[in-house]
């Protein structure tokens, strides 16, 4: 039995301007100790997927419409608030994108670090404090026994993210959800933070869901990858399958955008257009308006069904374009097509 088995997770936001289909039928699973990377552009529903699992979606306007998320045999989406509180911070922890705003500026680091321990473990405050100092040392904060009494504003961004990691892992959870943990940080610090997450994961055997739009990070640290677009699953598989045998046009285009894989001196490749407006219903394939592949048939139609290509590797089998050729050929052939302005809202 996998540690986490998510099936058909669907989260909508019911706003005055209509229903925003932020996450629309996403499924994945995760074994103990494994790392799953969720990738996609901004607004593709990666973060909302994570928040839905933790039930941190503001309700209203958000609502988890359907789906199941079996964690250790229990459905996270059906838990009572009390049961949820027992899971949050104990079995599942989370780190957030912006370390500058994710720590409470009014409370000492020590108070915030030991909070989860006090909540979930029968531990006296002295032992908890020692554990907190230990946790800070493990994420590489020098002078931890003194700095534990500092306030968040006395730390730099990278240091704060280390504190967040220490805080999330202090209860040795089974699952760590990291929502773009490096996006708000300096490039030099990003690598350090990823290294710390990986190292702590190895020490504790924690499974990790890593949300990112940095494909380089995914290639370096994930066992499995889920590619999302417009709130939907486009393709999923092992890191090798996704990187060496991408099937979906979006996955292929996304890979083309990795800066380090592009020739030096050349203009960087970008996918033209904008991500879809998920407040309007999407017909057919969500990526269709921006797809560089030759189109076949009308874009209106049934949503592409997920189809297995090989064991563990599936894609939203799109019948609206001819995606048999590798993307390089298509891009070379249809240079004018790519250059055309594309209406992203279509």
């Amino acid at each position: 039995m996998p540690l986490l088995d998510v099936d058909d997770l669907t989260t909508y936001f019911h706003t005055r301007d209509g229903v925003v289909r932020a996450v629309d039928g996403v499924s994945f699973n995760l074994e103990r100790g494994e790392t799953l990377g969720i990738v996609g552009e901004s607004g593709s529903g990666k973060s909302v997927t994570c928040y839905s699992l933790m039930r941190l979606i503001p309700e209203p306007p958000g609502r988890i419409e359907r789906g199941t998320a079996m964690f250790d045999g229990r459905d996270l989406l059906q838990m009572s608030p009390k049961e949820l509180r027992k899971v949050r911070g104990d079995k599942i922890s989370m780190i957030f994108q912006d370390p500058m705003t994710s720590l409470n500026p009014y409370l000492r680091i020590s108070t915030q670090l030991i909070e989860a321990l006090q909540m979930h473990r029968d531990i006296d405050s002295k032992a908890a404090l020692n554990k907190a100092i230990e946790a800070l040392e493990e994420v590489g904060i020098p002078g931890a026994s003194k700095r534990v009494f500092s306030y968040p504003h006395e730390f730099s961004g990278g240091m704060r993210q280390r504190v967040m990691i220490a805080m999330a892992l202090i209860t040795e959870p089974d699952l760590l959800i990291a929502d773009e943990p490096t996006t708000a940080l300096d490039v030099t610090v990003q690598a350090q933070i990823m290294e710390i997450i990986k190292q702590r994961q190895n020490d504790l055997g924690t499974a990790v869901i890593l949300v990112t739009h940095d494909l380089g990070v995914v290639a370096g640290s994930c066992d499995k990858v889920l590619v999302m677009y417009g709130g939907r699953e486009m393709e999923s598989g092992s890191a090798d399958q996704i990187f060496y045998r991408p099937r979906h046009p979006y996955t292929r285009a996304l890979q083309k955008t990795i800066p380090s894989l592009q020739e030096k001196g050349q203009e960087l490749f970008t996918i033209p257009g904008l991500p879809p407006d998920v407040s309007k219903p999407i017909h057919g394939c969500a990526f269709h308006p921006r797809c560089p592949y030759p189109k076949i048939g009308s874009p209106e139609g049934e949503r592409p069904q997920l189809e297995d290509i090989e064991p563990g590797h599936c894609w939203a089998a799109c019948g609206f374009c001819d995606s048999s050729a590798p993307i390089e050929t298509v891009l070379a052939k249809a240079d004018d097509h790519v250059a055309e302005p594309v209406d992203g809202d279509a």
Partner: peptide, 22 residues
Amino acid sequence: NQDWVRTARAKGVPEHTIIWKH
């Protein structure tokens, strides 16, 4: 509405503690 309230919720802190302490 601050982000760190979300952090506290993610730690399993009950609402009344979030109000009084955070």
